[in-house]
Design a protein around this nucleic acid. Structure first.
Lengths: 221, 221
DNA sequence: TAGATTGTTAATCGATTAACAATC
DNA sequence: TAGATTGTTAATCGATTAACAATC
């Protein structure tokens, strides 16, 4: 029942879909049934044509004058993002960030289920952090194969990121969510998503400097 | 001593600079003094021309045959990103993610100093989380003005994000790092950086589905 | 010197935005 | 009906990549 054309859309579109989904869920909770691209665009300060192009990848068509069915869009976006089914994942590294991710409830509505956490620290192994058991990392390969887990989350110190990734790959993990600044090398049949916070901080720093600089030159404009 | 041309570069370049910086710091720690765009490109799997274009925004020029001075690049990138001086910040919301950010040591090397945390929960107010004091949110406006804090980090539940942002803006905060999925409305003289994890998860989900789908159609290629 | 490398201009690629006929 | 809205093609914009003279 997956779209035959596999019109996967571009990655920029994929990045915007969760934003639309969040907005649509709010509208839906308010009992609203239809929404036009014009209205979505106004709320998100985006271009209406872009909204229509983005929504087109879900296969949902709108109705002239009425717009798009909100429940239909919600279902279709979730299906497109594979958030309609649960994907099991392993997390390695139960420090501050790892523990925070284990406790983040939002993942459940995004089809992500962190089934087991791993660490090397004997003080942590055997513990239960936010309802998730922490096992010795040596147990990962065997468990990954038995549980058919394909997604791995890396929240270890940067120096260990590559070796954890290597272990994951050898265990059959096919997708890695990397929260370290390390540039991890992986084979072509594995995908990686880098979620390094310093990237966002860099952008914010530059933007802040820019907006503060404008203050002093305001008289020039 | 800030560049007179204010050649701010594009945001894509800014996103890549922390990656270069991390790599350069590693090379520097190994005692290496020069590196060419060709070698950086090979290590990061990027285009050499893109590396040269990106590095040009820092004002550092390379030497034909030798490449770029690693220490000079490190200094220049840090200066460009404003990571050479410390910026004070407030954090609102001391849940799982907020606590994790308070404990993240990496921020120090990026010039970010979270001076105070805020919450509304009486059980948390007065506590000290990872060496940072937690105050009642009602203290934020006064303190922001007295301490001249311009950067705010939002790690509250999504429903409260807008009201926290409004409070920050009224207190003189000029840059907001938003970790909620909420589309926050801000005046034009304030900048925002959205760091919603679900965006990255969406991309990874689609990529994983794509790579798993390839397995079954491998015979077609 | 010979050749690896830079810095920059031109060409290409991809994503965003504009224009507009079709439609309910 | 009149007009708000869709879906799509064409135009524009911006970022990446190719080409290459200058250079150490």
């Amino acid at each position: 029942m997956i779209s035959e054309k596999t019109k996967s859309g571009n990655l920029q579109t994929v990045k915007r879909l969760p934003t639309y989904l969040y907005l649509l869920n709010n509208l839906n909770a308010n009992g609203r049934e239809f929404i036009s691209s014009t209205h979505i665009a106004a709320m998100l300060k985006l271009d209406p044509t872009q909204i229509r192009k983005d929504l087109a990848v879900t296969g949902i068509t709108g109705r002239p004058k009425a717009g798009y069915s909100i429940p239909a869009l919600i279902t279709a976006i979730k299906e497109f993002l594979r958030w309609d089914n649960t994907t099991d994942a392993f997390l390695v590294g139960t420090g501050n960030l790892g523990s925070a991710l284990l406790g983040y409830n939002g993942f459940k509505t995004h089809g992500l289920n962190i089934v087991t956490a791993f660490d090397t620290d004997p003080a942590k192994i055997g513990a239960i952090i936010r309802d998730t058991m922490v096992l010795d990392i040596s147990k990962l390969p065997d468990l990954a194969k038995r549980m058919q887990v394909h997604l791995g989350i890396i929240t270890v110190p940067a120096d260990y990121a590559q070796s954890v990734a290597d272990l994951m790959v050898s265990a059959g993990i096919r997708a890695i969510w990397n929260f370290t600044p390390t540039n991890i090398e992986i084979p072509p049949y594995v995908v990686i998503q880098n979620e390094d916070l310093s990237t966002g901080l860099a952008q914010l720093s530059v933007k802040l400097a820019h907006v503060l600089a404008k203050d002093s030159t305001a008289s020039d404009e």
